[in-house]
Design a protein around this nucleic acid. Sequence first.
RNA 1: GGCGCCAUAGCCAAGUGGCUAAGGCAGGGGCCUGCAAAGCCCUGAUCCCCGGUUCGAAUCCGGGUGGCGCCUCCA
Length: 465
Amino acid sequence: MRLFDSSKRRMVDFVPLKEGEVRIYVCGPTVYDDAHLGHARSAIVFDLLRRTLEALGYRVIFMKNFTDIDDKIIKKVKESGRSLEEITTHYIRRYLEDMEALGVLRPHIEPKATESLDAIFHMIQRLLEEGIAYRTEKGDIYFDTSKDRAYCSLSHRCDEESLSRIEPDPLKRNPADFALWKGCKGEGDICFDSPFGPGRPGWHIECSAMIQKYLAYKEGPYQIDIHGGGADLLFPHHENEAAQTRSACSRELASYWLHNGFVTISGEKMSKSLGNSFFVKDALKVYDGEVLRFYLLSTHYRADLNFNEEDLVASKKRLDKLYRLKKRIYGVSPSSVNPTLRDEVLSALQDDLNISRALAVLDEMVKRGNEMLDRNPKERGVKRELAANIEFISQLLGVGGRDPYSYFQIGVDEESRARIEALIEERSRAKRERNFEVADRIREELKEMGIAIMDTPQGTVWEKI
RNA sequence: GGCGCCAUAGCCAAGUGGCUAAGGCAGGGGCCUGCAAAGCCCUGAUCCCCGGUUCGAAUCCGGGUGGCGCCUCCA
């Protein structure tokens, strides 16, 4: 497997720290609001990475955190009058629902920052002992970036010109220094007891501490294999994570750093501060989760994806074709996946998750499958292999695993269904009587209801348009 | 200002030194069909511009132009 490593800024061969096993950490959401499409994309691309590694035979341990203590959450607590726990529990549940709708496999480990305070204390303590962290008069504890020789080796973005943009803070020794612990601001602040007095952790420390606690190998130059997250986290978040672990544990956090591109709207990054966020829950009202997943998956993970409905529809049509093929082989039991298909898809994904190449192989399989079935519709061996191919694909990409008939009838209620089927029956009768005028009128009527029908040797089937 | 990324057909998008530049959507033509739909076949590219390196460049180098990101919370 080849991956683009952000730290080295080039493509590298992936070699796991322990043979046959891969440990991955991905930065999860701060749970103060619903997930938007950017969160969805990040989750989906790293889910693809996980599935690919699993398909290659690795035992994967996948971890994703919930940041459940943070300025924005506290702000929400104050505004809403609800408790911190109420809010974070709510948004964690919402996140998990969204992820499930998008076919994202549940991580093996899902720690929360507030449940990892012991590990956080421990790491801060170490940094204080080593003289790398310092306290300020306000009760905050900062990380002294000048004490870490390798600081900036990940993001390569800490030249003076850049750092001069950071708002100066007289309490900090260096501009890039960041808070490990924020002392309690008094009345109204949400604070935890700690060996350093009441307060709460800084944003970056939780990841380093939780990785060490839950996921890290105990020995070796690196703690875990892969650390992933959105490209906006590279600096300062990941740089700081790396610095903390390096300084507290005397080794590197991850041997590979991966970053996904943004979801943009009209070419601009989707973000809550820009107010152009598109929430997953809202998208799911209009588009099926699987279609959304397929769309977000179909652009290479490092490139930006400019969200628009036209491309999403094109993506849906591409997925439709897979499901139509699946209809044609309905009910047959799968034999074994075509080895060439398997190799080609996996070798594409092994090339830094080249999804475009993988999907081109998939399209080719669909086309050739249809062609073979056109020529010989009864060929059982072909059908069984196609069934196996589709099963393989659906495992790997997380799309195409559904019942093909229900896929085309998503969102149609029982009442409409009965009406549609009655109309189709009426039309079939008309057709038998060669009353094509009536038959065509019924087709039109169905079309107006948003239903397309198609006559097949097995009878008339319908799809929601 | 610093550090980066990107620019391939109407749209999305692979390809990063060498046969006719993948694939999908849309469009056009055909086969099939009572008519359709679906499916299949055929059909589309001065690879942003200008220089350079090379026998040969979308692909490498230099310079432009345009777009975007990080440096502040961010997936």
